[in-house]
Amino acid sequence: MNMCTLIDEKNKDQLIAALLDLDIYKMPDGRQFYEATESELKNQFLLRTNYIS
């Protein structure tokens, strides 16, 4: 199972927790995580962990 598949299986709360673990506290535009969509959170996680292709 690759990282993208693992990320796709995470829910919004898990994605927020993963971003917080990376010391990321807001979306790039300043919004709080709860204001972002699950897709936006996934993209931020993948960008921050260099898994986006």
Rank of each mutant, 00 (worst) to 15 (best):
N11A: 05
L6A: 12
D8E: 14
Y34C: 08
C4R: 12
K12H: 13
A18H: 02
N43A: 14
E38Y: 04
D13T: 13
F45Y: 15
M1C: 04
M1L: 06
Q44G: 02
T49W: 08
A18L: 10
L19E: 01
M1F: 03
L22P: 05
L22F: 11
D23L: 13
D8W: 07
L15N: 00
M3R: 09
R31L: 12
F33H: 02
K42S: 08
N50I: 01
E9R: 06
A36K: 04
L46V: 04
L47R: 09
A36S: 11
I16R: 00
T37Y: 08
T37R: 07
L6I: 12
D21S: 08
K26G: 02
A17N: 10
N11R: 06
N2E: 08
R48S: 15
T5C: 07
Q14L: 05
Q32W: 07
N50S: 07
L20S: 00
Q14T: 08
R48A: 15
D8T: 03
D29P: 01
S53P: 11
S39Q: 15
D29E: 12
E35F: 09
L20K: 08
N43Y: 14
A36P: 05
Y51H: 15
L22G: 02
N50D: 13
S39I: 05
S53C: 09
L20Q: 10
E35L: 02
K26C: 05
K12W: 11
Y34L: 13
P28N: 07
S39Y: 11
I16G: 00
N43I: 08
C4A: 15
T37V: 09
Q44F: 05
I16F: 09
L22E: 13
T37P: 01
A17H: 06
L15I: 04
L41I: 12
L19R: 03
E38S: 11
I24S: 01
A18M: 12
L47Q: 15
Q44I: 10
M1K: 06
E40D: 14
K26V: 11
F45H: 01
Q44S: 09
Q44M: 15
E35R: 09
E9T: 05
I7H: 02
F33E: 05
K26L: 10
L41P: 00
T49D: 10
L47K: 14
L6M: 12
F33Q: 00
I7M: 03
Q32D: 14
Y51P: 00
I24L: 06
L19T: 00
S53V: 15
Q44P: 08
S39K: 11
F33K: 01
S39F: 05
R48E: 12
C4H: 11
I24D: 01
E38M: 05
M3L: 13
P28E: 12
I7K: 00
I16V: 11
M3H: 12
K12S: 05
N2T: 14
D13V: 10
S53L: 14
M27V: 03
I52H: 07
M3P: 07
Q32G: 12
Q44N: 00
D13N: 09
T37E: 15
D29Q: 15
R31V: 05
N2W: 07
S53G: 10
N11G: 06
K42N: 02
L6G: 11
K10I: 04
L41D: 00
Y34F: 13
E9M: 04
G30E: 05
F45P: 04
P28I: 13
N11I: 09
F33G: 02
C4S: 15
D13C: 04
K26F: 14
